[in-house]
Design a protein around this nucleic acid. Structure first.
Lengths: 127, 127
DNA sequence: TGACTGCTACTACAAAAGTAGTAGAATCTA
DNA sequence: TAGATTCTACTACTTTTGTAGTAGCAGTCA
């Protein structure tokens, strides 16, 4: 299935699920910082929508509560969002990264480290 | 003024404006690919919202039509969006860039080129 | 086993975003 | 200068997203 477009809050919940691997509505809700923690039923609604989109699935029932797990991986979950963003930068990642550098969000050290690990994995891939 | 949060479509229009420098509603509308070109009044509404947000301003009147120009620069316009995205990656750009690399959207060559230009500007900054 | 607690299912509603129609003013042109 | 054209101003409606309440069932525990 194509990666569905996830909204901000949906993605927030997915992050928790990718982290927790499996969680109940209650656990999800309580994993959110108290400051901005929404009502239990709000989380419930969102998880329901995620289920409808196929991003999440029920795994089992504990007591009278269902447990949920991500049905898509983190990569494909964020892919869509990133691609949308890239679209605004002409579809290419380079201007985006330039922007990150210019605005001080990415340093030379970061780039070097990334390059190092990239070099490694490239080698690995071509072994 | 703090950069307002722009929606997808608003940003789309801003892109045109940053490109065109100055444009009428009609020009903006027609700059959009025919496939997905919205009604004239839709563009009008959006530009009105952008104006309300302070992202756009009227420059002058030609005939009976107003001309508009961006009131914020491209950098601050996209900043908010990017920061939101970064939030999803733990607030740091590095995992985002990793992701770009992993998904093949950024190559070793890109990174090297970026590093080169970054090295240069760093030197320049510290002159 | 009955009261309590917690969860689900369903419904609702507000705000944001997307989309566009209509009336009437301004401008253009024959 | 009158009709045609093109804009603006205003209004309206739909979809999406965010947010949550309520009813009632399931499970728990004294």
């Amino acid at each position: 299935m194509a990666a569905p477009r996830l909204t901000r809050f949906e993605l927030e919940l997915m992050e928790r699920l990718w982290e927790l691997e499996e969680a109940s509505i209650r656990q999800l809700q309580e994993s959110i910082d108290e400051e901005k923690r929404p009502a239990y039923t709000t989380v419930q609604t969102l998880v329901g929508r995620l289920e409808a989109k196929g991003a999440v699935r029920r795994t089992r029932k504990i007591g009278n509560a269902y447990m949920y797990a991500a049905a898509i991986n983190r990569k494909s979950g964020t892919q869509r969002l990133i691609d949308d963003l890239l679209g605004l930068f002409g579809g290419s990642a380079r201007p985006l990264v330039s922007h990150l550098i210019e605005s001080g969000r990415l340093s030379l050290e970061d780039v070097k480290a990334l390059e190092a690990s990239l070099g490694k994995s490239e080698k690995k891939d071509r072994r």
